[in-house]
């Protein structure tokens, strides 16, 4: 699997980010695609991750909860960012840039991993979607926080409503399948990354 990975420095210094962007805009994105195993063990690289959260209708404080096959509960789908390809890899999100040398992304197509495809909702139904298409207007690379043993994943949280999508299944229309992040943080058996996201995004006041 090939994933998007970037030099660590661009995430931790806005000056370097701007310099990188100036250079980046002159070239295509192809050079950031790198084999996952290689990126995983390269300390100079940070992999772009997307954490896709699905809010209930326009209520951005209630999110769809996934119960994974091992019983772990998650408030979103973690995905490695990659570029569009004819062969779609599970566990990745294909980032569609606005243009060959643009940093703006206008579409993300997410292919959840098997554990999310086989997940159940809070009401016990199977999660009915294998592909999610969301249309954020964001520039990438982006990072809300670093994650992983060597902090080698730049996690960016994308909150996108799929409820109004005509293909959305009834399961996503059931408000019982959604919880606030405060409620999620008080569930048992939470996924570790979901907990970190919820701690960052949860507002108790």
């Amino acid at each position: 699997m090939k994933v998007l990975a970037y030099p660590r420095q661009i995430f931790i210094s806005s000056k370097v980010y701007l310099q990188y962007r100036d250079v980046y805009l002159r070239y295509t994105h192809v050079r950031e695609l790198i084999e996952h195993d290689r990126a995983e063990y390269c300390s100079a690289l940070v992999q772009q991750m997307i954490f896709l959260m699905i809010p209930y209708e326009n209520l951005v404080d209630k999110f769809y909860i996934f119960i994974l096959p091992d019983g772990t509960k998650s408030c979103g789908i973690p995905l490695h960012a990659t570029l569009p390809s004819k062969v779609h890899t599970k566990g990745t999100a294909e980032i569609h840039y606005d243009g060959a040398v643009s940093m703006w992304v206008n579409k993300i197509v997410a292919y959840p991993s098997d554990e999310y495809i086989n997940a159940r909702s809070l009401s016990g139904d199977r999660v009915p979607r294998r592909v999610f298409t969301v249309t954020p207007i964001q520039h990438f690379p982006r990072c809300d926080f670093f994650w992983g043993k060597d902090l080698n994943h730049a996690v960016f949280v994308v909150v996108k409503n799929i409820r109004n999508n005509a293909r959305a299944a009834p399961d996503y229309q059931n408000p019982k399948n959604y919880l606030s992040l405060l409620e999620f943080l008080h569930l048992s058996d939470r996924d570790e990354l979901s907990t970190a996201v919820a701690e960052l995004k949860c507002r108790w006041r």
């Binding site: 405060l182 943080l185 907990t195 701690e199 960052l200 949860c202 507002r203 108790w204 006041r205």
Partner: peptide, 8 residues
């Protein structure tokens, strides 16, 4: 000026 979080 302010924000709030929960640290488990």
């Amino acid at each position: 000026f302010t924000c709030n979080f929960l640290s488990l």
